[in-house]
């Protein structure tokens, strides 16, 4: 990864942290499209408990990990709701980047293990370390070889 790409990733992460850590506190608290559709037909009291009617949401059961320290996008033990939501959001961004970025990095196509072409050129530039590229060998293959191939 070039330095310029690294800066772009860093900048993007900062934007995501700002959105999840700060702006998230100004998000609408109304149920989303799916949730509101499933609540249609039921009557709710002030505590958001179903007090009458019939709707799909009545069948909803407890989440398996409802006791997770970050359940409901809040940090358990942090009473200030702004801080709690913001911290949970920021942690979620970092966690998602770490898990996603880590998995993508591990499964990525290595330059050395690429298509047949570069593998063949690797053999050509083997331990003998020929200084001149073989006829027809592409220059980008050379740079891949120079990048610390074993």
């Amino acid at each position: 990864m070039t330095k310029r790409s690294g800066l772009f990733i860093l900048g993007g992460l900062l934007v995501a942290l700002l959105l999840a850590g700060v702006v998230s506190n100004f998000a609408s608290a109304h149920p989303d499209g799916l949730d509101s559709t499933l609540r249609k037909g039921c009557v709710f009291d002030a505590d958001d408990t179903i007090v009458g009617g019939s709707c799909p949401a009545q069948q909803a059961r407890e989440h398996e990990l409802a006791d997770s320290p970050l359940a409901d996008y809040g940090v358990r033990g942090v009473d200030n709701t702004y801080l709690s939501t913001g911290l949970a959001g920021a942690l979620g961004v970092l966690l998602t980047f770490a898990v996603g970025g880590g998995l993508f990095w591990l499964t990525r196509r290595r330059p050395t293990a690429g298509p047949a072409g570069s593998a063949a050129s690797g053999d050509a530039a083997g331990p003998a370390g020929s200084a001149t590229p073989a006829p027809g060998q592409r220059s980008d293959d050379m740079s891949a070889t120079a990048d610390g191939r074993p």
Binding site: L19, A27, G101, R108
Partner: peptide, 26 residues
């Protein structure tokens, strides 16, 4: 997925996580 796309994909996932938290009124 190459050296350039892998970190970008991580960023896209993190960004989607962030923006999913931003419920907007309709």
């Amino acid at each position: 997925l190459d050296d350039r796309l892998a970190p970008m994909a991580g960023l896209v996932a993190a960004f989607i996580f962030a923006v999913q938290m931003l419920n907007f009124p309709i």
